[in-house]
Structure formats: C-alpha cells, structure tokens
C-alpha cells in the first residue's frame, strides 16, 4: 500500500516548542518509524490517524488524501478508517473485553449490538485466543492479553491499515519475543498494511520492509530493507547507522 507523508507541525507547551518536519513515502506493507523518544514519531502517527492536526502539508494513504492543508482537506479520524494500537493499549477500563471490542462495531450512542454483531465479537475474541476473557475488565488482564484485546478491538473496525505505537514497550522482554511473532502472524492473517513505531532494533528486524529513521523532529534516513532474509542480513549495517545517530 502506498503511503505518502509530508507534514510540518509546531507544538508549544509550557514555553517549550517542538518542530516536526517529517517526509517519507513507501510502497511497502510494513513501515517502521524508528528513533529515540521525543523525535516526533508518535506525532506523525497521530497526524496520520487524524488525532493531531499538522500546521501544514499532506498525508496520503492507499491513494486517498487524508489531509492536505493547501486543498483544505482534513478527514476526521472516523472517516480515515485506520486502526490504532496505543502504547498502553488504551482499553476502556469501565467496559468488559467484549464491550471494548464491540465498541468498534457500533461506536455510536447508545451503541447496542444485534445478535450477529455479538457473534462477530465472540469470533474475533476466539481468533485472538481470548474468548474466555470476554466478560473480564481490562484491569484483570495480563500485558499480553491486553495487547490481544486491543488488537482485536482495532481489527474489529475493519481498518484499511494499522498504526502501532511502540506495541511491545509495555511488555516484559520474554513476552515481547512471543507477542512480536503473534503480531507478525496477525498482520499476515488479516493481510493488513502496518505502520509501526519503535526504538527497539529487534522490531526493525521483525517488521521493517521500509525503515524511516527519525531524529529531533526530522526524518534523517530512509532504507528499503525488503523481506525477512534481507533484513536479517543487513541488520548489522542498520544497527551501526542507528548507533551513529544516538551519538549525535
């Protein structure tokens, strides 16, 4: 899927300002935005999702213009139809797992679900191996179960693409390896393009067909890493590049 991002944003908070100037384009179905925290990755993802309005520029995804400051185009998050996996998963704490996932099927008010929709929610939960947790509150779930629930919720809305903000940073290292494999499976099973943020080189090795490197609010490098074998072969080169950036 084609993704084109060319945006600028100035954020001001408490007297400090941050200038984001991000530009990249990719045909790959798995794009990884890599960089240290505070380098503008999350702002870029929020801009693509329609949660943050850039000062200027253009965002296109799969041939659709989501945002274009010159043409005055700015689709609402709802119209963009993108799935978003938040760093802390952002499950609604006052709803059960099934209600969380059901929210994606009928996000209006009062949001009742018919029998077919309820069955759809159950199927999706089974699909992610958390059918037995349908009536639990998110607070009672483990880290891995929370991620599955959040993914199930995002996929339930049948998004065109999935945006993932540091999907494994909330997990302990052992679980991280397993969930990384699970996510790769999920992306393949649903055949959905993904844009993923990380500062973990292991995520780059696992997902990055296109690698976009951020530093201090700017895209400083873009690499086409291709399939898994090529990624693994070129990983030392990539790590050397990332380490050189850390120093500057």
């Amino acid at each position: 899927m084609n993704v084109r991002v060319d945006i600028e944003a100035v954020m001001r908070a408490k007297g400090r300002s941050f200038h984001l100037r991000a530009s990249f384009e990719s045909e790959a179905n798995a794009v990884v935005l890599f960089g240290p925290s505070g380098s503008g990755k999350t702002l870029t993802l929020q801009a693509i999702a329609g949660l943050m309005r850039p000062t200027g520029g253009r965002i296109q995804l799969g041939g659709r213009t989501l945002f274009d400051s010159r043409a005055g185009a700015d689709l609402s998050p709802r119209e963009r139809g993108l799935g978003y996996l938040f760093q802390d998963y952002a499950l609604f704490p006052h709803m059960t797992v099934a209600e969380n996932v059901g929210f994606a099927l009928n996000p209006g008010w009062p949001g009742r679900l018919d029998a077919a929709s309820r069955q759809g929610v159950r199927d999706m939960l089974e699909n992610f191996g958390i059918g037995h947790l349908a009536d639990e509150r998110p607070a009672r779930l483990s880290g891995g179960q929370r991620q599955r629930a959040a993914l199930a919720r995002a996929m339930m809305a049948r998004p065109q693409a999935l945006l993932l903000d540091e999907p494994f940073s909330a997990l302990d290292p052992l679980l991280r390896v397993r969930m990384r494999r699970e996510l790769a499976d999920t992306l393949e099973r649903f055949g959905i393009p993904a844009l993923l943020i990380t500062h973990d080189p292991d995520d780059v090795a696992a997902f990055a067909k296109t690698l976009v490197v951020y530093h201090q609010g700017q895209v400083v490098e873009q690499l086409e890493l291709g399939d898994e074998d090529e990624r693994k072969r070129r990983l030392p080169e990539v790590i050397a590049l990332l380490e050189s950036l850390d120093g500057c």
Binding site: Q46, A49, G50, L51, S76, P77, R78, G81, L82, G83, Y84, F86, Q87, D88, A90, L91, F92, P93, H94, F103, A104, P107, G108, W109, P110, G111, R153, A154, A157
Partner: peptide, 27 residues
C-alpha cells in the same frame, strides 16, 4: 480522563455524543 482513551474512541469511529456518553461521562 486519560486523553488516549478519548483518542482510542475517536479512531474507532465514535461520534461526539457517544464519546461523551460512553467514554468521558462514565469515567
């Protein structure tokens, strides 16, 4: 109320009314 919960609801397609009635008010 955690702004990410509001953001999550928006990416899932929540309208203003349901955002208020189903997410913000209950929290």
């Amino acid at each position: 109320v955690d702004p990410n919960l509001v953001n999550a609801a928006r990416t899932l397609g929540a309208t203003r009314l349901s955002l208020f009635c189903r997410v913000v008010l209950p929290l």
